[in-house]
Simulated assay, not measured.
Amino acid sequence: MTPPPQGPRGPAAPAGPLAHAFRRRRVGRMADDDGTGGGGAVRVDSWIWSVRLTKTRSQAATACRGGHVRVNGERVKPAQSLRPGDEVRLFHAGHERIVVVSRLIRKRVGAPAAVQCYVDNTPPPPPREFAAPTGVRDRGAGRPTKRDRREMDRLQGRQG
Rank of each mutant, 00 (worst) to 15 (best):
M1C: 07
P3S: 09
P5W: 00
Q6K: 15
P8F: 05
R9I: 10
G10Q: 08
A13N: 03
A13L: 12
A13S: 04
P14G: 09
P14M: 03
P14A: 01
P17T: 03
P17S: 00
L18R: 14
A19G: 02
A21S: 15
F22Y: 15
F22P: 14
F22E: 13
R23D: 07
R24W: 10
R25Q: 09
R26P: 08
R26A: 15
V27F: 15
G28M: 01
R29F: 06
R29Y: 00
M30V: 03
M30C: 04
M30Q: 05
M30H: 09
A31M: 13
A31I: 06
A31F: 13
D32F: 02
D32S: 14
D32V: 01
D33Y: 14
D34F: 05
G37N: 11
G37L: 14
G37E: 09
G40N: 10
G40R: 09
A41H: 14
R43L: 12
I48P: 03
I48Y: 04
W49Q: 09
W49F: 15
W49K: 08
V51E: 11
T54V: 02
T54I: 02
K55D: 01
R57W: 01
R57S: 04
S58C: 10
S58P: 01
A63L: 07
C64W: 05
C64Y: 13
R65T: 11
R65K: 15
G66E: 15
G73T: 08
G73S: 11
E74V: 05
E74S: 02
K77G: 07
P78W: 01
P78M: 00
Q80M: 05
Q80S: 14
R83T: 09
R83S: 08
P84K: 06
P84E: 06
D86G: 04
E87L: 14
L90T: 01
H92K: 01
H92N: 13
G94T: 04
E96Q: 13
E96S: 05
R97E: 09
R97I: 05
I98L: 15
I98M: 05
V99K: 04
V100W: 00
S102C: 11
S102L: 12
S102H: 10
R106P: 00
K107C: 08
K107Q: 15
R108T: 03
P112K: 00
A113K: 07
A114G: 06
A114L: 14
V115H: 05
C117K: 07
Y118L: 02
V119R: 10
V119L: 04
D120G: 04
N121E: 12
N121Y: 11
T122E: 13
T122W: 04
P123T: 13
P124K: 09
P124N: 03
P125V: 08
P126M: 13
P127K: 11
R128A: 14
R128S: 08
R128G: 08
F130Q: 10
F130H: 03
A131K: 04
A131V: 02
A131F: 05
A131Y: 02
P133H: 06
T134S: 10
T134V: 03
G135F: 13
G135W: 06
V136F: 11
V136M: 07
R137S: 09
D138S: 13
A141D: 11
R147W: 02
D148A: 07
D148C: 04
D148R: 03
R149T: 06
R149L: 14
E151K: 15
E151Q: 15
E151C: 02
R154S: 05
G157P: 12
R158S: 09
